[in-house]
Design a protein around this nucleic acid. Structure first.
Lengths: 205, 205
DNA sequence: ATCCACACTAACCGATCGGTAAGTACGACG
DNA sequence: CGTCGTACTTACCGATCGGTTAGTGTGGAT
């Protein structure tokens, strides 16, 4: 017990550092040397903990991907479509806010995207994006709905991960992203009216 | 006359190729060798046309950036806030659809973003993002509005540049993105406009 | 005292990176 | 004919890339 504290600590610090650098410079723009320098160890030390750069990227991305999958699965258990969407949206926004850097990185780096798709998504019966679209817009969504869902997921993720909102506290950011998501998806806003009520067109009853 | 046709042709083919590769692999993930190979010339030939890789990236991004600036400036000349927003949104969506790859690349590559910010945006009195936010949400927007605008611009750009919608024809994509943008911004949807009717501003009414 | 697994380091690998220097095929011009 | 500019190519540079190998210091168990 209390076993590999040192190793565990270095390993998790390594992941934190990698995430930070990846999100600043992109995955291809971040070298193993940069990660090692930032950590204060040699490059070879990284290869003691991970077999390759790709494995580091996987380890960085995996937890959030798993969490997203879980949120989507939970949402599927809800009875009404409305409840499914509300749960998925709330969970998605919460994940984005808690993992701002990672989520921003995730749908912004072509290299990471390709890697993740190969190693973490492809093996599953259904890839995450498809699942997400299915939860928000049904199994066989119209083009309009598919586009709306894409705008929502990408928009919320990029805004959540944007450096200009880095100083905004989690609760506030979550509320605003939730509002934006609901507006896009045409979901009614629950009671909570914020100070600045805009004229919301409600196209559907 | 008809002078530098060959050179001009190579130069523009070079830019096309670079854009394609940048958007597939990211800027850091694309080497000069890759561009040269795809073009069927040697790497050194690239350096005949451009001084550096950065200069290529600038040349790739510059026209769309200029066009965006022009759209925003045009929008500012409109009388009502509503007309300003409508013009900017229509122009923005139109630009995204016409330049899908580039726009997708633009807000997805940390390396390109940093470069562009240094070389093309910083010198201007106001950077593009600030200008965009000002047009859509006023000079001193609330946090909620700033976030909404960010979600919109990033969401529309990423959806427009997304490979899964690559096969969608321009008009259709434009309509759906416009709808999503209007929903987000709380703009009323105009009654079924003729889809051919674009935003061409009447020259000095 | 010895051994051993752990968590590294120093030194190195071939490949590739962005970039450069020198040379060349070629058409236009005089 | 010769010469000049254009649009390249061949050959090369030092630096850095991801990754490997062999060795080292250290703490705990025996």
């Amino acid at each position: 017990m209390t076993a590999g504290t040192a190793a565990n600590d270095t390993r998790s610090r390594l992941l934190d550092t990698a995430l930070k650098l990846f999100s600043e410079h992109g995955m291809e723009g971040t070298s193993m040397q940069m990660i090692a320098d930032e950590l204060g160890v040699t490059k070879a030390a990284l290869y003691y903990h991970f077999k390759s750069k790709d494995e580091i990227a996987e380890a960085v991305a995996a937890p959030a991907l798993q969490e997203m999958e879980q949120i989507l699965d939970e949402a599927c258990t809800k009875r009404s479509r409305g409840a499914q969407i509300d749960h998925a949206l709330a969970g998605f926004v919460d994940l984005i806010v808690r993992q701002r850097m990672l989520v921003g990185l995730f749908n912004s780096d072509p290299g990471l995207q390709r890697l993740i798709h190969r190693t973490l998504l492809a093996p599953k019966d259904k890839d995450l994006k498809t699942k997400l679209r299915a939860v928000f817009a049904g199994e066989e969504p119209s083009l309009a709905d598919a586009i709306t869902v894409h705008v929502m997921s990408a928009g919320l993720a990029m805004a959540g991960g944007a450096p200009e909102f880095a100083a905004v506290d989690d609760d506030t950011l979550r509320q605003h992203l939730l509002d934006a998501g609901r507006r896009l998806l045409g979901r009614p806003r629950p009671k909570r009216l914020d100070k600045r009520l805009r004229d919301l067109p409600r196209p559907k009853g």
